[in-house]
Design a protein around this nucleic acid. Sequence first.
DNA 1: TATGAATGAGCGTTCATTCAT
DNA 2: TATGAATGAACGCTCATTCAT
Lengths: 207, 207, 207, 207
Amino acid sequence: MRSESESPGQKGRTFIEEARRRQIIEAAVEVIAEQGYLKASLAKIAERAGISKGVISYHFDGKDDLLHQLVIQLYIAGGEFMAPRIDAAEGAWPKLRAYLESNFEFIGQHRTYLRVFVDVIGNLRDQDGMLHFRDMQENADVLDPLVELLEEGQQTGEFAEFDVRMTAMFIRDTIDGLAGRVSRTEDFDMERYSRAAVEATARMVCR
Amino acid sequence: MRSESESPGQKGRTFIEEARRRQIIEAAVEVIAEQGYLKASLAKIAERAGISKGVISYHFDGKDDLLHQLVIQLYIAGGEFMAPRIDAAEGAWPKLRAYLESNFEFIGQHRTYLRVFVDVIGNLRDQDGMLHFRDMQENADVLDPLVELLEEGQQTGEFAEFDVRMTAMFIRDTIDGLAGRVSRTEDFDMERYSRAAVEATARMVCR
Amino acid sequence: MRSESESPGQKGRTFIEEARRRQIIEAAVEVIAEQGYLKASLAKIAERAGISKGVISYHFDGKDDLLHQLVIQLYIAGGEFMAPRIDAAEGAWPKLRAYLESNFEFIGQHRTYLRVFVDVIGNLRDQDGMLHFRDMQENADVLDPLVELLEEGQQTGEFAEFDVRMTAMFIRDTIDGLAGRVSRTEDFDMERYSRAAVEATARMVCR
Amino acid sequence: MRSESESPGQKGRTFIEEARRRQIIEAAVEVIAEQGYLKASLAKIAERAGISKGVISYHFDGKDDLLHQLVIQLYIAGGEFMAPRIDAAEGAWPKLRAYLESNFEFIGQHRTYLRVFVDVIGNLRDQDGMLHFRDMQENADVLDPLVELLEEGQQTGEFAEFDVRMTAMFIRDTIDGLAGRVSRTEDFDMERYSRAAVEATARMVCR
DNA sequence: TATGAATGAGCGTTCATTCAT
DNA sequence: TATGAATGAACGCTCATTCAT
């Protein structure tokens, strides 16, 4: 039943087991949100979930695996939330705008989750001390869709000439910046940030 | 020998003590850079510095104090590097450009240090679980100079109309984004990022 | 499993846990008896009990809790030993005599435990540096029953006139004195002390 | 300059050195009075005395030696205070009364010192875990003068028949009891205790 | 004599993990 | 499946002691 030795997805898992896993991840999110990555011990997570410590070991291949799943879960959820909204838009700028706005909206709807997300991906490391999700933030999955969007806009003439890869990064920085601010500031004014970010991005990329 | 109970500056410390403190902070930087905040124990730091664990306790008021000093040291160094470069520029846009470029240059010169900086300010918490440097990222010290610069540019007509506070945040996000990328990617092309960031900012703020 | 957060008594504890707790307390008694409060580390106690250090933390809420339980356990055992003997006597002097003799007998039966008891209540302090059991030695629980006994004897005319509260203290001093002597002298002649103490007290309080 | 390797008394010590030793002992008394034996580190004692830690090591053969001297100093001071008062009295009961009252008076004048005394003799142990001053409390020095006094009174017919050695212990218990109460209770009414103790002793020993 | 610096052992505690039941 | 119990290593920290200056 170890998640890392299974094929991806939910194959081989009963409905009950999936429920347990989600329950444990939820508890982990709550504990990390309140106490931070460092102080989030399995004991506290188990207590929050109302189960014994051993259950976590049973369902996950250790603490790292649990946190790995936690990150992946939110990552997938984010993708599933944004994809249809972006697809629904037509034209490069409307799509980019949808990308930004749906991202912001998702962050707003998962503030607590985001705070935990930021905390975990900044700390979860393998045995060599390398960040587990170092690649995820830099590589294709995150940046490429944005790069394609920008290139598309340049080809259609909607967008000005600029270094697309770098500009994709700036846009990501603005989104990650919001995630960070939201995790640090309880009552951060997301609406205002979102509106201004869309305008700033428009000035930055549109002709 | 407690750093927190001392008056600011280096008063009351001997030369040799200052050297030891720097040596210990350097060792801490190296260990955190390689293994991350979580795994950076005093034992490892002491071993790296070639001293015994007790020496750290002797020179610092505990682990938190050591990390606090580490952050402050880089923070001050950054300010001292950038201030004259910004002051030397005349006009809102040249000043903003100097702000960006000196910031980027400083980050480039302290890549390892920066990686550690990001790690520590994201993890160092006080007894209530609050991030020690949460304010530092959000408050006046960091954002206000930028806000003033933008307002100045709007008054002189150099800059377009936009939400200055939010725009200041976007600019910070780009800088913090670089810090993050530099900490994650060994051979990140800073030159290209820097050049593109200056151009993007220009499009974003200038008329 | 934290003893301080549990309701009084043994509710919520399994039989096996109670056995472990008793075993650990016994080991603590032995170590403190031999090496004294100061040198009695959890490591030594665990070694004596033949378990690992962590087990103590698992069953007690820290070292202070363990020692607290140790004291309370003997305190309660003493009360349970003496109470029926005192109740069985009729008349103020017979009751006082039973108080003394049952106290002496209990001390004699728990010489080692008493040595430890004296050591712990003289050293165990809370975070403010105040002795945990300072009150226990001075307050109602210990002195009041004795005061009542003496007042009763004065009302029935069995006892002479004297300062009852102070006299209660002198009687306690004699008992505590025995506890101290027993802890210091391996082969102290308790019988002789007990007999002489009863006689001396009779001369002191009876008409 | 190590005290244990020197002959007793002050031979071989300069006036300045004696002053330093007294100063250090005073500082130790203050620290132990406030924080208790356990938390009284040499660092705190040195800080209180306004000197560096090393000085203590220079003047005393380690912490144990310092505390040893501390106890002896008060012990001698007590003897010097009481002896002339007892000698001045004539007759067994007046002498015993002077013994009690001068003892009480001395305790009253050195409440803080006494608290420390009780703390130290209860904790200071040699390497085998034996109390350093175990004998002092039980042997000739403390008990014999009292025994002689009681025997004298019995021979002159002033005192009744009783077990003198045990009775000497009861009297010591009352004195030690006061020392303990004074150390535990800030505003303990010594006058009342003293008066009642003299009366109670009279009833206990006089015909 | 006195000091600041350093040591190294030991402290109480936390925690991910294992395992018999 | 789930649990309570136990482990053992690592943690930050304290402290008596040593020593070159």
